[in-house]
Design a protein around this nucleic acid. Structure first.
Ligand SMILES: [Mn+2]
Ligand SMILES: [Mn+2]
Ligand SMILES: [Mn+2]
Ligand SMILES: [Mn+2]
Lengths: 220, 220
DNA sequence: GCTATAAATTAGATAAGACTAAATAAAACC
DNA sequence: GGTTTTATTTAGTCTTATCTAATTTATAGC
């Protein structure tokens, strides 16, 4: 029933899942191509194969959608990835900007037994070091509907950073230096054409939209 | 200079290193073939490739010997492997019979940074859960000349188990059940044609030669 | 030293996953 | 609606690492 997928196949499925979260259209080959850093021809190739395995719905010039089976694979890999990120961060003292790359490789090779041990050690956590939700052991995602990107908040609202949706090492490092890390308290000072003006601790920043849209906040 | 080796290449180099430890002859293709569970033709193929990379000395019908460069790769992988085994065992509560398989895959994907974190967490250990020596960060093997297989000891000698040279899950599990684990105190009661007779705690066993030869002891 | 057996190599096939270049389909533009 | 641009697919090549089958070389027995 599960003839063991390759690393590549797992990465495609995971990426399709992540790209699907942004809209409900099928994911385009070009989109996958860019995010996976392979050429579009390679994507078409792989989509055909995954389609034959009934892991994606694919028709030429249509794009790709995960089947339920494909979604379950994606969630499993995502669980590995995010548990590993948290483990590296919490237990081994990695910075949040370092964990993604390492987890990207480890996610494919850890056994279910190791996954379980890690989850146990971490107390069955629901979110990783970037605030990304960790699928539970039975592959359900926790409810995250109460978090919003900075760009959607109104002036005067206060809250704390609850998620950062970039994996870029240098961006994450930059945010650390600005004390824009998880749980940091902040207030919206202004929503402007060129960014979001915020107050954090003693500091004030004008965060470019590009960056602000990746910082999610829980208000209180 | 180091164009990143594949998992396969690393496994071949590691296996050649381990097989070389048993004698000083070049390692035969058949030997590699059996231990790596690939066909001899595949071995020949790979040896040619590794030879071109100057990682092994290879001439047709001669066998393979690691070059210094190849040996360093092998030691690096071995360090990963054994550190991981110990980590899984000590920190995550895996049994000594479970760790080998897991480490076999992880050894190829951990970064030098993760290797260092693990070594640090473990206090820069010199031996893994089977008593196998762990190469140091600069790839030196600790001196292990004071340990001998059970089959070489004389009647009356006492000591403790210091190394077990099998990775077979079921054999290791069996040994656990018999309390024949690292540090177990024992005394040689007899050296016989069909095995070594030992006393461990309250128990006495006649260990078949096949098994006894894999149990190494430090005497006192 | 010849012969039988065992070991190793060669040759050719296959599968996975990437690529380039060319062809085709869809979308956007006016 | 025809034309240009963009996206996608097809066709064919490459690399890595396997395999099987056939051949060659080495070793062991007598
Ligand atoms: Mn990955
Ligand atoms: Mn994350
Ligand atoms: Mn391995
Ligand atoms: Mn070991």
């Amino acid at each position: 029933m599960t003839p063991k997928l390759t690393e590549s196949q797992e990465d495609y499925l995971k990426k399709i899942f992540l790209l699907s979260e942004k809209h409900d259209n099928p994911v385009s080959a070009l989109d996958i191509s860019e995010h996976l850093k392979v050429k579009p021809a390679s994507v078409t190739n792989m989509l055909k194969k995954l389609s034959e395995l009934n892991l994606v719905d694919y028709k030429p010039y249509y794009g790709a959608r995960l089947t339920r089976a494909g979604e379950l694979v994606a969630l499993e890999v995502l669980r590995h990835h995010r548990l590993l990120e948290l483990y590296l961060s919490e237990i081994l003292g990695f910075g949040w900007e370092e964990v993604h790359e390492e987890a990207e490789k480890l996610e494919h090779v850890i056994s279910e037994r190791l996954e379980a041990k890690i989850a146990e050690k971490l107390g069955h956590p629901t979110h990783d070091p970037h605030g990304d939700p960790i699928p539970s052991a039975d592959l359900e995602l926790p409810d995250d509907s109460h978090r919003y990107p900075l760009t959607r908040l109104k002036v005067g609202q206060k809250g704390f950073i609850s998620r950062v949706t970039t994996q870029d090492t240098d961006s994450l490092n930059m945010l650390s230096r600005l004390n824009l890390t998880l749980k940091a308290q902040l207030e919206i000072i202004g929503q402007e054409r060129n960014g979001v003006r915020v107050e954090v601790e003693q500091d004030r920043f004008l965060l470019p939209l590009e960056l602000a849209s990746k910082i999610w906040v829980e208000t209180h």
